[in-house]
Amino acid sequence: MTNDSQISTVTFPDRELLAALEPLPVGVRGAVWDLRSAPIGVDLDDVDAVVLPYINASEVLGELGRVPHLKLVQTQSTGYDGVREAVGETVAVASASGVHAAATAELAIGLILASLRGIDAAVRDQQEGAWRPQRHLSLADRKILLVGVGGIGKEIARRLQPFEVELTRVGSSARDDADGHIHGAQELVALAATADVMVVITPLTEQTHHMINTHVLAALPAGALVVNVARGAVVDCDALTAEVLKGRLKCAIDVFDPEPIPADHPLWTAENALITPHIGGNTSAFYPRVVKLLKKQMEAFARGKVPDNLVQRGPFA
């Protein structure tokens, strides 16, 4: 690590997170900055790295421009959309890859099961005291199209194995790995034509914005289920809404564009829609796992090593 990449002073969004990491390794100093008020215990001129808040981080990204010697930004989320644009290419960006993998994979499986097995409809029936048994689809024997093969995608695939599904995976480019073939994104329309369930778990980038577009959605068979646990804008949400309101597709979504979904949006009352409020990684598993990651990052800073999970290398190039 060069002097240009040496990190000595790190800010944390709240006192509780900093306390969970103390004592910090020798050579690393911590301070508190929530990016909404003045930092506590440090001048911004001295800050080398900033740990973003977990919730609503996108609302405060503009404040990063106030840090004149910023070298690294650490997210507490797997996604990092907007962060690189906010800081420019000279600043490193590290994600919380791995922290949310188990929890988000759990939710993806839960949304699939709830939608296919009609649990959402049963909850509505319960409010009326109505007993309406029906024959629903089983997850067993379904053809699953998994769009995204990163850390969370791998965990979703692993959890799907016991359910006896036919799994097809899609990545940015076609390749093979230890688990078989990964199709390229350019094959999405053709692959969608035979999918019963499409699960979206790919990062939001310029390349993946509206990756699941009108053409992909139109290619899905009638009755297919779209599950989005990635970022809202990976899917053309207007096009998805239109398909769901027509009754041609079903959706089970944890994310949307925009968020929060407007109160008068028709998807709220659509029978074929199941909505959770962006809670994929926000479980009891989050805090101990993010603390573990941050401890590892602080040790890397202290030892002059390159930190983990860099999605933009900045001074570590």
Results as ranks from 00 to 15, higher is better:
6 Q>A: 15
13 P>A: 14
15 R>F: 01
20 A>Y: 03
26 V>G: 02
31 A>D: 04
37 S>C: 08
43 D>M: 14
46 D>I: 14
46 D>C: 14
46 D>W: 14
47 V>T: 01
55 I>S: 09
58 S>F: 15
61 L>N: 11
69 H>Q: 10
71 K>Q: 00
72 L>V: 06
73 V>T: 08
78 T>E: 02
94 A>M: 13
96 A>G: 06
102 A>I: 15
103 A>R: 13
105 A>Y: 09
107 L>R: 12
111 L>P: 12
114 A>V: 06
114 A>N: 04
117 R>A: 09
120 D>V: 12
122 A>F: 10
122 A>P: 03
124 R>Q: 05
129 G>H: 11
139 L>E: 05
144 I>T: 07
145 L>S: 05
148 G>E: 03
150 G>T: 05
151 G>F: 08
152 I>N: 03
152 I>Q: 02
155 E>R: 15
155 E>T: 14
156 I>D: 03
158 R>E: 11
160 L>D: 04
160 L>V: 09
162 P>Q: 07
163 F>I: 05
164 E>M: 11
165 V>K: 04
166 E>M: 14
167 L>Y: 12
167 L>R: 14
170 V>C: 09
173 S>E: 03
175 R>H: 08
178 A>V: 07
184 G>A: 11
185 A>Q: 05
188 L>K: 14
189 V>F: 08
190 A>M: 05
195 A>E: 02
202 T>W: 08
203 P>S: 06
204 L>H: 10
205 T>M: 03
205 T>C: 06
207 Q>N: 13
207 Q>G: 12
207 Q>Y: 10
211 M>D: 00
213 N>T: 04
217 L>K: 06
221 P>R: 13
221 P>N: 12
230 A>K: 06
240 L>I: 03
247 G>L: 04
249 L>E: 01
252 A>T: 05
252 A>E: 01
255 V>H: 11
263 A>S: 12
264 D>M: 14
280 G>F: 06
282 N>P: 06
282 N>Y: 15
285 A>Y: 08
287 Y>E: 04
289 R>I: 13
293 L>C: 04
300 A>V: 08
301 F>H: 00
301 F>M: 02
303 R>P: 01
303 R>F: 04
308 D>F: 15
309 N>S: 08
310 L>A: 00
313 R>F: 14
317 A>C: 09
